[in-house]
Amino acid sequence: MAEINFIVILLIATVTAATPLMLASLGELVAERSGVLNLGVEGMMLVGASVAFAVAASSGSLLLGTVCGALAGALMSLVFAFLTLSCMANQVATGLALTIFGIGVSAYIGSGFTGVSLEVSGPLVVPFISDVTILGTFLLGLEPLTYVTIVLFFCVRWFLYKSRPGLMLRAVGDVPDAAHAIGFSVLGVRYLAVMFGGAMAGVAGAFLSVYYTPVWVENMTAGRGWIAVALVVFAAWNPTRIMFGALLFGGVTILQFHIQSANLGIPTQFLTMLPYAATIAVLVIISSDRARILLNTPASLAVPFRP
């Protein structure tokens, strides 16, 4: 019984730690599928986190904070989209600049909220569900936003592979000239895809600052935005594999503390690095099939389109 409980708590922690990565990666996936490489995920996440925390702390509403975080992320990505799509700026350089810009802006927005905490309620007890012990503990232990993320995963997968607009989006990312010739608005699709990516990154940041800690700290994403970008590439633009990679990252993040308790004598600095290294290593190995990568890579990724 005790062991089962331990595993359930471990699973809850893993899924919760993976949630921000899932959100940000799914957003970036849609953007990249449309042919736009936005390396500014880290910056958009940070701005989302600081805006969401500021709004949540001021208004007391976590939901309002999350929505504002999404809007802030979308706004950041709009700047990126304007520069790269309308002004034809280099996507890689602009994305890097967006991250640096986001770090600064988020620090400025959050400066009044350092050392402030949101109040947290006690453990949730729902009569029927709490009684069904194991499953109940697991289901109630997850954040509501995690459920939203799982729903979003199915939506994104369905959208990309089963819906007409998704087909159009992939066409825009693969052969924009042909899509343009048929009469699709390549830039319009890309604008929307990039903004969806920005909004998702914003929600990912909001999850960290409003639900996860819930405290605002400068640079609190701690490289998760970069991992999200890496996940998309190393998962070969496959949403299911992205979810798997995010769970792996979350799992190792949580497991490192238990490894420490096991007294194996591994330096803690090494354990701190482990989630990043392990996630990338595993994804590189499972995605090392060249043919599959070529098949899945958006053919016009990061290539500007001139109508």
């Binding site: 331990f6 708590i9 730690a17 700290v217 609190m220 238990h258 308790s261």
Partner: peptide, 17 residues
Amino acid sequence: YDPGREREASDALFAQG
């Protein structure tokens, strides 16, 4: 000062009884 890791470490400890 790292609220994310402090939270994760606390939860890990709770899981260990």
